[in-house]
Design a protein around this nucleic acid. Structure first.
Lengths: 217, 217
DNA sequence: GCAACTAAGAGAGCGGTGCTCTTGCAATTG
DNA sequence: CAATTGCAAGAGCACCGCTCTCTTAGTTGC
């Protein structure tokens, strides 16, 4: 196996057990039976390795969600929304540290490269497709006022690339739903539901119900 | 000044400039003109120092929000909700790294002590009071079904201590609103709105409008 | 078939980290 | 005055990211 792939694989298992702050190049090297300086031939810095892992995590999550939606193509829009949202959650719970890598506190001075941004839109794209399909099937009565000034605070040109065929009236709620899903997972994974939510599975379904209502699904 | 207070103060300025991962006991000691081992008399470990800072951050945020709500006591419930939510956001934007300390990726193996949990409920308590006041003033028509099985997935006994006089029918939406506010801030502060939201001030107001609608405010 | 080049790891070392343990000093107390 | 206590200093351990030079193994070109 190419060394780069091995390094990333070992790093992922290390992150899975000790968290991202517990990832050290020296330990990766030790695990590989190689001296630490050898790794610098493949990753100039620890942050470069993290960037590669972030990129992979976005794509892994994106692929999982795309797969889930593809399998649910015959379902109703509301069901597809729930299925894909559950796929996001399942991935997050299975890879909590990789989730933290992409949706937790960013490493200081980290600037996402363009390729990462691209990978990060895969989940929103899936949710967007469901919205536009639903809107096409039976249009949801929308408040036209909501579309008037969205270009004042949203990057409509960029959003149109992701929210294809989604009416502008829905942009705010669509962003909210996206945000709510990941906000929920952060709260769940980071322990903010301890003492208030005892069955996150059920609570998540309730949240999905509310979001579906908000989105007219 | 007591050494403990000095250590925390220096730590806070250090965190503000270099982030939480950039906080080192040795640098704190250097800044104080003292040798690093001296600090271990006051904090047995770096994590203990962080725990103290987390506790302070929760209380600082809680006090800010309580103050904002107290000043808005004559306003309508909807306005109070917006004012306190804005206070949360203002605090988060002014103390992004302390925000990360409490709502970002937790340090591995970290377990919040009871005192911290108590401090963490100050914001929810304020939001809850607004809800119960509004419900008292003019009751919001609630779906009684929503109250039926909440004890199946929520810690109703513990929640009743915080959500005082808030009808159970609203528990899910109340938790969602709380979660949405912090989810929004995490997205805003951690750069997930780059490329989609260009004016977070306005977007936040739109989100508050939606949440107010959801809560009947 | 041999020389030249290249890819990849070894090893030493720098300055940094959290943390421990022993030592020394100074103030306070009995 | 003697004893105790509080507090900081200093040395040192094992780890970290990262840099630099050196050696080895393999490949290429003639």
């Amino acid at each position: 196996m190419a060394q780069i792939a091995t390094i990333k694989k070992v790093s992922r298992t290390l992150i899975a057990t000790k968290g991202v702050s517990g990832l050290s190049l020296r330990e990766v090297a030790r695990e590989m039976g190689v001296v630490s300086s050898a790794l610098y031939r493949y990753f100039a810095t620890r942050d470069d390795l993290l960037t590669a892992l972030i990129f992979d995590a976005y794509n892994d999550l994106g692929a999982s969600v795309e797969r889930a939606d593809a399998k649910a193509s015959s379902e109703s829009a509301g069901e597809r929304f729930r299925i894909t949202a559950r796929a996001v959650r399942r991935w997050a719970r299975r890879h909590p540290h990789e989730y933290g890598l992409i949706y937790g506190t960013p490493v200081p001075n980290y600037v996402a490269p363009v390729s990462t941004i691209e990978a990060a839109t895969r989940v929103p794209r899936v949710l967007s497709k469901i919205l536009s399909d639903a809107q096409e099937a039976h249009p949801f009565p929308l408040n036209v006022d909501a579309a008037r000034d969205v270009d004042q605070f949203l990057e409509v040109e960029a959003l149109e690339e992701v929210l294809v065929d989604v009416p502008r009236e829905m942009y705010v709620r669509a962003l909210m739903a996206w945000n709510m899903i990941f906000g929920f997972l952060s709260f769940e994974l980071y322990g903010h539901y301890v003492g208030s939510v005892k069955n996150a599975n059920v609570m998540f379904e309730k949240v999905l119900d509310e979001l579906a209502g908000l989105l007219g699904l």
